[in-house]
């Protein structure tokens, strides 16, 4: 159990690559923080700096009330789950779990108790005598989790632990990891590039871009008030539509137009917030040509081309759409569903 405090962390790799540039973050005890961002944005680097696998170029890192900048990984009291699981292939599952405890000179009985307890919890008790190569992907994932659990560390670090699993198993493990984390109340730092994982698992999520924090907040905060165009585009699927404010003033209609925020020249609106019937209250209306219908089971996506725009607008509706491809369609957005941004800075207008 511990807090993690990052204060202006920097990482410059030997080749001169600046992977992390000035990250400050306070993580509360027992909190589940998800680091999310596109590939190459520095998530793994930051996580590995916390683990002690990469040196910290600048800034201070505290775990609990110790500054750990210069401590070895083993001394930081953290456990890590790797993307490729990194199970020891020549050891049985039992020995994989016990390895860290043996190195720390735990008494044999205690090792036995902890390993069996973790194995029960993760439902891998019947595999304790097997080698990793005789396990399925999902079972290996559980062993990797188990190896972190038995240590009862101050913090868990996860580096895209589910990305090697198939979609169905990924959802299942996502739920299990979150349940386990809530039960154990262990501070966790979880890296993923999957925005859905981030939204569903995080107490707070941290959106990273180019080695910097774009936004920190609860999933609801980040989803409903994205702080930048980048976050708006990255969190939520299908991605938020971006429409030129000038276009709205020119072509849009409805009683919301005069209320558009001053200074915003780019307006974002989520596919769910575009409606085919006019809502109550202030709203605006647009029209365009239906370019493609995309039924996706319980919902459908309608792609609409606005006159003079090259990117289609995505509208998400429940069930099957009532419009036809090639037809002209009117659609509406409530005033409070509009996200105002400044194009030049990429930031949200307050």
């Amino acid at each position: 159990m511990a807090t993690i405090v990052m204060d202006d962390l920097h990482k410059v790799y030997a080749g001169g690559v600046k992977a992390v540039t000035g990250i400050s973050l306070d993580i509360a005890d027992g909190e589940m923080i998800v680091l999310v961002g596109p590939s190459g944005c520095g998530k793994s680097t930051l996580l590995r700096m916390v683990a002690g696998l990469e040196t910290i170029s600048d800034g201070t890192l505290k775990i609990g009330d110790r500054v750990v900048n210069n401590l070895e990984p083993a001394e930081r009291d953290i456990a890590m789950v790797f993307q490729n699981y990194a199970l020891y292939p020549h050891m049985t599952v039992f020995n994989n779990l016990a390895y860290g405890l043996r190195n720390r000179k735990f008494p044999k009985a205690e090792i036995d108790r902890r390993v069996r307890e973790a194995a029960e919890m993760l439902e891998i008790a019947q595999f304790l005598d097997r080698k990793p190569r005789n396990l399925s992907g999902g079972q290996r994932q559980r062993v990797a989790m188990g190896r972190a659990l038995v240590r009862e560390p101050a913090a868990f670090l996860f580096d895209e632990p589910l990305s090697n699993l198939d979609a169905k198993l990924r959802v299942q493990m996502r739920v299990e990891i979150r349940q386990l984390q809530k039960r154990l109340k262990t501070t966790s730092l979880y890296v993923t590039h999957d925005q859905l994982e981030a939204l569903t698992m995080a107490d707070r999520l941290v959106v990273l871009n180019g080695g910097k924090i774009e936004q920190v907040g609860t999933p609801m905060d980040v989803f409903s008030k994205p702080a930048s165009v980048f976050v708006a585009g990255f969190i939520g699927s299908p991605a938020m539509n971006m429409i030129d404010a000038a276009y709205l003033h020119d072509k849009g209609e409805g009683n919301a137009l005069p209320a558009l925020p001053q200074g915003a020249d780019l307006i974002g609106v989520r596919p769910d917030d575009l409606l085919l019937t006019a809502p109550q209250g202030p709203h605006l209306r647009l029209s365009g040509t239906v370019a493609l219908l995309e039924p996706a089971g319980a919902e459908s996506h309608i792609y609409v081309m606005l006159e003079g725009n090259s990117q289609p607008i995505t509208i998400r509706v429940q069930g099957l759409p009532t419009v036809l491809e090639g037809a002209q369609v009117d659609f509406y957005a409530a005033l409070d569903a509009l996200h105002p941004f400044v194009r030049e800075t990429g930031l949200r207008v307050a």
Partner: peptide, 18 residues
Amino acid sequence: IPQSLLEAAAIDGASRMK
């Protein structure tokens, strides 16, 4: 030998020799 195995072992408290 994947680097991550050695990293996992380092986190697991094994010295270089070990």
